[in-house]
Design a protein around this nucleic acid. Structure first.
Lengths: 202, 202
DNA sequence: ACGCTAACTGTCCGATCGGTCAGAACCTGA
DNA sequence: TCAGGTTCTGACCGATCGGACAGTTAGCGT
């Protein structure tokens, strides 16, 4: 199920130029921000000239879109699966697991459009991501009545996302992947538990 | 020598120029990012010329520092109080309350250096904020042994911060202040509860 | 009325921004 | 060997960036 994120081809030790540039751009966008990253920086980081960057990607915006596009695709899949299985309680469990996996796999992309999603409206990929996230909150929050329940949902998902994002900012020791994954699932599930209890009992 | 830099006076309906510029800058920094905000935009938003902005603040960096400085001061106070009362369990309760209040009061500032703290290293105010936050995590996480406990702490604080920050991004209905405050305190306290239980029982 | 000073602005500067374009270098098949 | 296409780059463009600076305006003590 988990296909490689970047080029499936490129059998040799050297990635394709597009993939190298894309990777460098994504890292810069996530750490320095879209506005704070120049094409020259991306080119330097990737080992190409600025002109080469613009040869492979028609514009800076197109580069951003290509960088976060796959993550948005994956998120859409996760959420469409959620919509189908909305009512069951174990569906929630499954969703939490898939969502955490999504966060773990697309850290940089999530970092990019979580921190700058609002300031980059107009770029198609960003708009799509915002729409998907908006759909998630509304579809999930539709059944939530009290303020605490809504906040609980926001803190759980936002907190999980932010934790992964912040963990690369600070000098946090890097936890083992599997341990971090299961711990996050536990925490988020626990945060969402009162919501599920209410819906299954009431 | 003559007067304070940011006028506490100005009794009329019109704020002092420095305060107007500072407010406009903070809003732009929080929404568009530091790199994504030009002095011209700030000047336009505040109703002054770009030259005036640079008259009141020696540079763009100085403007950022002045904008988030008070928030960092306040955060330092909150955390120094935490250090003094570290061991007691009710001290944790108090800290959560103060921390949430801090987040509520300094939304824009928190938004600014949470999203861009890593990319703005070198600006003194930002470095101070990062140091303070680093001190918080290390002092708090010192007693935490398992990965889950550390993540629990990160999700709680990061989630609360992110929720407030994201609430102005999406079309979230604005909740009543007091209701939101108490709900957040409940949620964060609950997230941190297993940590306290372990420390008081073990 | 005068001069001093704080507040404010227009103009200019070098650097850098995103982006265009003509051509160099390279790889292929014929 | 050579033609054709892909990849890559340096030179260049207008716009905008943060900032410097001289000058204008307004307020105030004398």
């Amino acid at each position: 199920m988990t296909t490689s994120r970047i080029e499936p081809e490129a059998p040799s030790h050297r990635q394709s130029a597009s993939a190298e540039i894309l990777g460098a751009a994504l890292e810069q966008f996530a750490t320095a921000g879209f506005a704070g990253t120049s094409l020259q920086q991306i080119a330097d980081a990737a080992g190409y000239s600025k002109s080469s960057v613009l040869y492979h990607f028609t514009s800076k915006e197109a580069l951003l879109e290509a960088a976060i596009g796959p993550a948005v695709d994956r998120l859409e899949n996760v959420l469409s699966g959620l919509a189908r299985l909305r009512e069951s309680s174990e569906a929630r469990e499954l969703f939490v697991e898939e969502f955490i996996d999504f966060l773990l796999e697309y850290r940089l992309e999530v970092h990019t459009f979580i921190n700058q999603g609002q300031s980059l409206v107009g770029i198609p990929g960003i708009d799509r991501a915002n729409a998907v996230l908006g759909g998630l909150t509304s579809s999930f929050a539709a059944g939530l009545t009290t303020v605490e329940e809504k906040l609980r949902f926001g803190v759980a998902l936002g907190g999980a996302a932010y934790e992964l994002v912040a963990s690369m900012n600070f000098g946090d020791e890097e936890f083992p992947h599997e341990e971090r994954r299961s711990a996050l699932i536990t925490i988020v599930s626990e945060l969402l538990a009162p919501i599920q209890n209410r819906q299954t009992t009431a």
